[in-house]
């Protein structure tokens, strides 16, 4: 399970290092003792049923939510001790893209580039490149509020990649899109992962998406890690991803029910 937790041979720090991360809201434990490592260049699918703690984990990684316990390092920078460097190394697309509806994609991406400390000299090129990679060149001058949901999602992605971050954190990037838009966004993510050499951590519950672009899968349920394996190994036995997950999650549920001593749900 912890096969990926080995240090890198090249001496480069892991892209993401999560160490015993926990988040509690009062009695409720949203994320509990979560640890995993993502190596540079890896594309990892971060999966789990609704309410498993995916968004909470991503919010802690990006510095939006302070963890109750544990810590994480982004490209070697601690999210607490070295917060600004860690944030600079991350591109983040939250579940709802953080857009200003009255702005144009070009002005908006430029604004984000300034926030993320893209040097002035290369900023225009960086903005143009981000817009182009996300297929936004034609609508760059239109107001975001007039754009379709698929285009807005692309603006969200452009915002996440404009400063060419080492790590890309994408929270359900295809939720609520139609099949064609899903295919487009998915192709875009695959392109970013292969041509950009970026580390991507992607939360989703669409298994086809995972099969299409991820190399490794981290599955969590009720805030705990239940599976962390390369995709190739998971489907090696001939079973589909869906079968594997259903099996793992059902077993996990049974175990937790047994641990509590109550009737199984």
């Amino acid at each position: 399970m912890s096969e990926a937790a080995k240090p890198t041979a090249a001496g480069r720090p892991p892209a993401i290092e999560v160490e015993k991360l926990s988040k509690r809201y009062g009695e409720h434990e949203a994320v509990c003792d979560l640890s995993f490592v993502v190596q540079p260049g890896e594309v990892v699918g971060f999966l789990g049923p609704n309410g498993a703690g995916k968004t909470t984990t991503m919010r802690m990684l990006t510095g939006f939510l302070p963890p109750s316990d544990g810590t994480a390092r982004i490209a070697g920078h601690d999210i607490f001790a070295d917060a600004l460097a860690a944030r600079r190394a991350i591109g983040y697309l939250p579940e709802t893209p953080p857009l200003y509806p009255e702005m144009t994609p070009a002005a908006y991406v430029d604004f984000v580039a300034k926030l993320k400390d893209v040097p002035r000299a290369g900023r225009r090129e960086a903005v143009d490149r981000a817009l182009e990679r996300c297929g936004l060149s034609e609508v760059r001058g239109r107001e975001i509020r007039q754009l379709s949901k698929g285009y807005r999602q692309r603006v969200g992605l452009a915002q996440a990649i404009v400063h060419e971050p080492q790590v890309l954190v994408l929270d359900e990037p295809t939720v609520g899109l139609d099949p064609i838009q899903i295919r487009e966004i998915r192709a875009l993510m695959a392109e970013l992962a292969t041509s950009g050499g970026q580390t991507v951590i992607l939360s989703t519950h669409i298994l086809a998406e995972v099969e299409a672009i991820c190399q490794r899968v981290v599955l969590i349920a009720r805030g705990r890690k239940v599976l962390d394996q390369p995709l190739a190994e998971l489907v090696a036995g001939g079973s589909t991803l869906e079968e594997v997950f259903t099996r793992v999650l059902t077993r996990d549920e049974a175990e937790s029910a047994a641990a509590v001593g109550g009737p199984s749900a």
């Binding site: 510095g63 944030r87 953080p98």
Partner: peptide
């Protein structure tokens, strides 16, 4: 708007 999340995760 959810843009708070952008500001608070920026350096």
């Amino acid at each position: 708007n959810g843009t708070e999340e952008l500001l608070l995760t920026s350096p």
